[in-house]
Computed example of a mutant assay.
Amino acid sequence: MRGVFVDANESLAVIFDRLRKDGDPDMRVHRDPDITPEQYPAILDGAEIAVVDHTALPTEIARQCKGLKDVVFLGTGARSYMNPEELAELGISVHLIKGYGDTAVAESAIALMWASARVIAMMDREMRAGNWLREDGMQLTGKTLGLIGFGGIAAEVARIALGSGMRVIAWNRSPKKYPGVEFLEFDEVIDESDVISIHLLLNDDTRGMISRACIEGMKPGVILINTARAAIVDEEAMIDALKSGLIRHAGLDVFNTEPLPKDHPLTSLPNVTLSAHSAFRTPEASENLIFAAWEHCRRIAGGG
């Protein structure tokens, strides 16, 4: 059985090669993170396994990949890049990797929250332009953090926020318990939170879940953090709320179009802190990610 890591950046390629063991399936590393979907058939060249970091795999392209049976997606957000149900109809299974970067993403969400509360990026930009901007920030101790979705990442966010003296409330689709966290109805979390952080997988149920009506129901001056998936939030409604001040500040790591275009409205709003879909990028998380990818490939090659 053959496989290809189709879009490896150099750092992930080095880890992938280092974690290779004797007896592993024949896995080739294509060291180019900037491929286009149309290149899949040639890069795979009949291989049965594709390890995919971030390159979209449209169903019509997958149909052209003769021999492809398994896609190992490096993360949990495969639906942003492919349609697993349509691929299943072609006999292609999509395998996800969960939990590899819970701490990394949680720390990034916390960093965006503090940067947003104290407008660090705004002051940095102004000072570099020669302006001595002194802006009042929001003190987070004693404030209420609302978590929308409560998996491993949200649990890590809760742990850090509780330690900093915040009240933490959460909503999850299935019942959960976590020490110090109050689990409430969705509308209650939206209504009571000074900071809202999104921690949901993207699917048909969550797409657009943070709607215009939902945003209009938020506490005036709320901070919104999204390290999950951009499509969960109505982008136009969020931008309108940022312009009106209903949302005091947004800290965003994910976008509907990536890379984010230079002329996108979000790039011109002063009350937004942006990071380039990099919340999960730490050496520790990358090690966990590639270890799990190899385990998937070994299991697949072994008939599991």
Rank of each mutant, 00 (worst) to 15 (best):
C214I: 13
A104N: 07
R31A: 09
D191L: 15
A276D: 05
E192K: 15
L200Y: 07
I120Y: 12
A50I: 04
T36Q: 13
K21I: 15
R79F: 13
A292H: 10
P41C: 10
A129V: 11
Y81R: 12
H30D: 04
I49V: 13
I15K: 12
P41D: 04
T144Y: 08
I232P: 01
I225R: 08
S193W: 05
D204I: 14
L87Y: 11
A276K: 09
V6D: 00
I247Y: 06
E192N: 14
D24W: 02
Y40E: 00
V52L: 04
V6P: 01
G137P: 00
D17M: 11
A154M: 09
A170L: 03
P265H: 08
V29N: 03
A8W: 00
M127K: 13
A279Q: 00
N9L: 14
G146I: 08
I92K: 01
S80T: 11
V29Q: 03
H199W: 10
L224F: 01
L252V: 07
L57A: 09
A106H: 08
A117Y: 13
N288W: 08
G303E: 10
L201F: 14
E235C: 03
I198N: 00
A104W: 00
K21E: 13
V254L: 01
P265C: 05
L140S: 14
L145R: 11
D7E: 01
D234G: 00
G221E: 08
D45Y: 06
P37V: 10
W132K: 12
V222M: 02
D234K: 05
R28T: 07
N226C: 02
R28N: 12
D234W: 04
T59M: 01
V51P: 06
R173V: 14
E284S: 14
L266F: 05
P283Y: 03
T36L: 15
I196W: 01
A13C: 10
G149M: 09
S268Y: 15
T141H: 15
H30L: 09
A42H: 10
V157D: 04
S278H: 06
V14I: 13
H264F: 12
I160K: 07
A8C: 02
A301M: 03
I210A: 01
A42L: 07
I43F: 02
L140K: 14
V168M: 00
C65Q: 03
A104Q: 08
I97T: 09
C297M: 07
P37C: 07
G91W: 03
V4W: 00
V52D: 05
S93N: 15
G3L: 07
L112D: 03
D240V: 10
P37K: 12
G99F: 02
G137I: 05
D26R: 03
A50C: 06
A106V: 07
E10P: 11
L184M: 02
V181T: 02
L112W: 11
M1G: 12
H296P: 02
A293V: 08
A56G: 10
A161M: 05
E86C: 05
K98G: 15
M122L: 15
R31M: 09
